[in-house]
Write a protein that binds this DNA or RNA. Structure first.
Length: 104
DNA sequence: CCCCTGACTAGAA
DNA sequence: TTTCTAGCCAGGG
């Protein structure tokens, strides 16, 4: 295998988003708006989230995607926090980054 | 074809 | 600080 997922049947939007997520590297985090803009669909942040929620079974690094306010995914906060932590990204109180010692 | 929902964002109150 | 509104794209009924 060439290391690629079965993107057959994916819409241009999904393929574009999947490519952006796949282009990310360990330790990197982006927001829905960033992914949408990089994919060529600025403002389609909702479509990105909606798609990821529907393609959760895919090998897309959904955990590297967070909300614009730095908030993690509702219903997957602990899950994403753990995955982000494995990528070397500090998470505190359901939020990313900030150094970890700013004390709320 | 029409209407609503959704792992969203930015701005205003 | 929180809450609400308008805008954006895709999918399902």
């Amino acid at each position: 295998m060439t290391g690629m997922a079965d993107r057959a049947g994916w819409t241009p939007f999904e393929q574009a988003v999947g490519r952006v997520l796949d282009d990310l590297e360990p330790g990197d985090v982006v927001t829905y708006g960033e992914v949408a803009a990089e994919a060529g669909f600025p403002g389609a942040a909702r479509a990105v989230g909606s798609m990821l929620g529907r393609r959760t079974d895919a090998e897309l690094p959904w955990w590297r995607v967070v909300a614009a306010n730095g908030r993690l995914l509702a219903g997957h906060e602990a899950r994403q926090a753990e995955l982000l932590h494995q990528d070397g990204i500090p998470v505190s109180d359901g939020r990313i980054g900030l150094g970890g010692s700013e004390g709320r």
